[in-house]
Nucleic acid binder design. Structure first.
Length: 427
RNA sequence: GGAGAAAUACCCAAGUCUGGUUGAAGGGACCGGUCUUGAAAACCGGGAGGUCGGAAACGGCGCGGGGGUUCGAAUCCCUCUUUCUCCGCCA
């Protein structure tokens, strides 16, 4: 969400940004929003003048009553009644126009960073850099769910009976590998100086609508029956919600947090064959990073953050690459974003295991997250990135470490979290 | 889940019964000064946060959130949230 003042003063830039995102249909919105803003300010000025008169007149009435001049006071009351009638109309119109303005402003995309590559959709996302050699062994890599089942590590059938499609039982060493990865991710980020945090796994509707659009909410969030509570889709929801409407002290910035949570997603819609198994599920666990910082530090943090994820996967010997989101694929709220993708020796391509974004002040404006600086308050910049999400991240570890006989080597970094075990062996 | 009490500005806190002179007493912290080699203490002075409109002057809103009554609400009514105390329940 942009600042309406910015739109007013930088109409061309806003329009150019929309064109770069191939959203020409949104171009008229810019003019409409400027027009609405003008009308609203006029109404506000009118209303303020009336309110001023009402306040003054009410004070006079109070004074007259004290002087026992009841008749005079009653005459003045009439005037205030008139004012209130006028105000009612003005306020109604002002509220309606404000709602309209807000809903239009929500749709106008945030100004992208100049470095974002121009492209229509995800097919034009740009590979930035590869890390590690993508190895394809001379034996065939089975589907990850089959590997796990062969190791007695996965039971989707029972999960289907208890909970339905999109759920799973992880068993034995596979379950342990899953937990190991998350614990390692947690410690990895703590070592990088991030503050570890376990947030609420359910949030109220006002927080949900603060952090996402209604469309997203419907497609993602599970609601608790008879409660004003939703299961979080990512800890970012609770972590950003934590700061909603808050003014943080400037000296506390940057706030670098790493949060663990289970994540629940409806994943409405049908998904391809590649997404059966443990790739796209209703429930997973994630170690996340969330940073609030001064605007001028946001880009440095962005670059640090995706590099942490790359470093994390490289420490598990998983080849990765970074894929920069092009203008057409970049979500409207984001300034810049890239995915960290892990190598799949089975598919012989990379697949997404994390996503790093800087939102500039858009999220902070929407939620009212400010910092108290020497020259007044300002909106902070917010960033978020995945350290590791499992089971998905675990798929990458398994596929890149599976032996021809179906056993899986455990990366050195995870062995301490697996009781020193080096291999998950076929039974 | 039940019963009570509370929420006022950066912090503490008065005001709420009895609506208007409270755009919010009084402290503390803060800033400036006197004194001091410097600091502390003491004393003197200062400014009340946030946000919206406005070039500015100035004005609107704001006493946990939302709604209502009234010419006028921190104050009365409804509702929600949070905190505390007690009871119940429970890893």
């Amino acid at each position: 969400m942009l600042d309406i003042k910015y739109v007013r003063e930088n109409k061309e830039k806003v329009e150019e940004n929309i064109r770069k995102k191939f959203q020409e249909e949104k171009l008229p919105l810019v003019e409409e929003v400027i027009e609405l803003d003008k009308k609203i300010r006029e109404l506000k000025a009118k209303g303020d003048t009336l309110r001023q008169e009402r306040n003054a007149t009410s004070d006079e009435i109070g004074a007259l009553f004290r002087e026992k001049k009841v008749d005079e006071a009653n005459t003045k009351k009439q005037r205030v009644v008139e004012i209130n009638n006028q105000l009612e109309t003005i306020e109604k119109e002002e509220n309606e126009l404000s709602e309209e303005l807000k809903s239009k402003m929500m749709v106008i995309p945030n100004i992208m960073d100049d470095s974002v590559p121009i492209g229509k959709d995800d097919s034009e996302n740009v590979e930035i850099e590869k890390f590690g050699e993508p190895v394809v062994p001379d034996y065939e890599i089975p589907y990850h769910a089959d590997i796990c089942e062969a190791l007695n590590g996965l039971d989707k059938e029972s999960a289907g009976r208890t909970s339905g499609n999109g759920f799973y039982y992880l068993m034995g060493d596979i379950a342990r590998l899953h937990s190991a990865m998350l614990s390692y991710a947690r410690d990895f980020m703590i070592d990088k100086g991030f503050n570890y945090c376990v947030p609420p796994f359910m949030i109220r509707s006002d927080v949900v609508t603060g952090v996402m659009s209604f469309a997203e909410m419907d497609a993602m969030m599970y609601k608790i029956e008879n409660e004003d509570l939703y299961l979080i889709g990512t800890s970012e929801h609770s972590m950003i919600g934590k700061f909603k409407g808050q003014i943080v002290k400037e000296e506390e910035l940057p706030i670098a947090l790493t949060s663990y949570s289970p994540c629940f997603r409806k994943e409405v819609g049908s998904h391809g064959l590649e997404e059966r198994g443990l790739y796209r599920v209703h429930q997973f666990e994630k170690q996340e990073m969330v940073v609030l910082c001064k605007p001028e530090e946001a880009m440095d943090w962005y670059n640090k953050m995706w590099q942490f994820t790359v470093e994390f996967f490289r420490s598990l010997d998983v080849p990765v690459r970074t894929l920069e989101c092009c203008s057409g694929d970049l979500a409207d709220l984001k300034v810049k974003s890239c995915d960290v993708e892990a190598w799949s020796p089975r598919q012989k391509k990379y697949f997404e295991v994390g996503s790093c974004s800087t939102l500039g002040d858009a999220q902070a404006r929407r939620l009212g997250i400010r910092a108290k600086g020497e020259n007044g308050n300002y909106l902070v910049s917010t960033l978020n990135n995945t350290v590791a999400a499992s089971p998905r991240g675990m798929i990458a570890v398994i596929e890149n470490n599976v032996n021809e006989d179906g056993s899986v080597k455990i990366p050195k970094a995870l062995q301490p979290y697996m009781g020193g075990k080096e291999t998950i062996k076929v039974k």
